[in-house]
Simulated scan of single mutants.
Amino acid sequence: MNQQKIALLTDSCADIPQADIRKYGIFVVPLKLIFSDGEYADGVDISAVEVYRRLKKEIPKTTLPDGGQVSDTLERIRQAGYTKVLAINFSSGLSGTHNLIRLIGEQTVGLEIAAFDTLSGSLGTGMTVLQAARWIEEGWTWPELLRAIPPLMRATHVFFCVDTLEYLQKGGRVGKITAVAGTMLQIKPILSFAPDGELISVAKIRGRKAAVDQMVRMATALVPRGARFNLAVAHGDAPEELKVIRSLAQKSLPDFENFMEGEIDCTLGAYVGPHLLGVGVQLLTDAVLSKKGE
Rank of each mutant, 00 (worst) to 15 (best):
L86R: 02
K84H: 13
I6Y: 05
G110H: 07
Q69E: 15
F116E: 10
Q250R: 14
F35M: 04
T128S: 14
H235I: 02
T125E: 15
S71Y: 02
L33R: 10
S290H: 09
P143G: 05
A287W: 00
V281M: 07
G182Y: 13
E75V: 05
Q107N: 13
L86H: 08
L268K: 00
E144A: 14
E261V: 10
A14I: 07
T73I: 08
T108K: 04
G207I: 11
N89I: 03
N89H: 15
K56I: 10
A48I: 03
S92H: 05
V223G: 04
F256S: 12
L284Y: 03
V158A: 13
D255T: 10
F35D: 12
G124E: 10
G43F: 04
T128Y: 01
D117M: 06
K23Q: 14
A181S: 15
L145A: 09
M184E: 13
M215E: 05
T220K: 11
L33M: 10
W140G: 07
A270V: 01
A133Y: 09
S120I: 02
V244Y: 13
A249F: 06
Y167I: 02
Q186M: 11
Y40F: 15
F229Q: 09
V244M: 10
K176R: 13
A155F: 01
E144N: 08
G273W: 05
F90G: 00
S120P: 01
